[in-house]
Simulated scan of single mutants.
Amino acid sequence: MSRSVLVTGGNRGIGHAVARAFAEAGERVAITHRSGEPPRDLVDAGCLAVRCDVTDTEQVEMAFKDVEARHGPVDVLVANAGITRDNLLLRMPEADLGAVLETNLVGTFRVLKRATAGMLQARKGRVVLVSSVVGLHGSAGQTNYAASKAGLVGLARSYAREMGPRGVTCNVVAPGFVDTDMTRALTEKQRDAALAKIPLARLATPEEVAATIRFLTSDEASYITGAVIPVDGGMGMGH
């Protein structure tokens, strides 16, 4: 039987690819998006789009109620919503630290907490948190982003210990440089510098990250929990 899948930040980039992959596999997929219209291809594929800012607890609650009414309790949660506010630490406004932590880390906490009740009742569930290679080895100019993504590892591993006896797995995917709108905004010099650090000498596609996430939610991965899986072309090797 198909499962109820929720992908936060599913309107573009990695989240979009994840939603498509689950929809093509016949799952009942819902995505959250903060603004604008949901992607037409996902709507045409049968995905439910709900407007939700993960920094707002009431919006998270309303989004889950909508998804549950249409698709049933969430069986698979992919927490992908995130933002960046890059700057050197010395020049970084404290508000930019707070905004990134509030979305990337606290926002993930909110959706994870809300999904837990249904998974506890069902005594099963699959959770994947989307972190970053930056959260594992750091990046100059991204102290706020790196801290938020590193925090997801501790969150996931603690949650995995709490929920393992209840049949729920929780893992982390840590993408490296992925061909999305974010990396397309890099200058040619920045892009070349990034590629020089990647043994496979290319960017990942969003579909490659989505495939890893789908595996971690499959029956084949039922004995994997608390793991951090890099999808980075070898960029963060050793972490």
Results as ranks from 00 to 15, higher is better:
residue 189 K to C: 00
residue 67 V to K: 04
residue 98 G to S: 14
residue 65 K to R: 12
residue 127 V to I: 14
residue 117 A to W: 00
residue 57 T to H: 00
residue 116 T to K: 04
residue 21 A to N: 04
residue 16 H to L: 13
residue 99 A to S: 15
residue 91 R to Q: 04
residue 121 Q to W: 10
residue 173 V to M: 07
residue 115 A to I: 05
residue 81 A to V: 08
residue 211 A to Q: 12
residue 219 D to E: 08
residue 155 L to S: 06
residue 206 P to C: 15
residue 224 I to K: 01
residue 204 A to N: 12
residue 181 D to Y: 07
residue 205 T to K: 14
residue 174 A to I: 09
residue 120 L to H: 08
residue 154 G to C: 02
residue 93 P to R: 13
residue 154 G to Y: 04
residue 229 I to M: 11
residue 5 V to L: 08
residue 60 V to N: 07
residue 128 V to A: 10
residue 156 A to G: 07
residue 40 R to I: 08
residue 169 T to F: 06
residue 43 V to E: 04
residue 59 Q to G: 10
residue 21 A to G: 09
residue 149 K to Q: 02
residue 239 H to V: 12
residue 85 R to H: 09
residue 1 M to W: 10
residue 125 G to W: 01
residue 124 K to D: 05
residue 71 H to I: 12
residue 73 P to A: 14
residue 46 G to C: 11
residue 200 L to H: 07
residue 148 S to C: 11
residue 228 V to R: 05
residue 144 N to M: 03
residue 76 V to W: 04
residue 40 R to D: 01
residue 219 D to G: 08
residue 131 S to T: 13
residue 201 A to M: 02
residue 154 G to K: 03
residue 13 G to N: 05
residue 216 L to D: 05
residue 60 V to W: 00
residue 151 G to R: 00
residue 181 D to H: 11
residue 69 A to Q: 11
residue 35 S to F: 02
residue 181 D to W: 06
residue 38 P to E: 01
residue 24 E to H: 12
residue 228 V to Q: 05
residue 4 S to Y: 12
residue 113 K to Y: 01
residue 196 A to N: 07
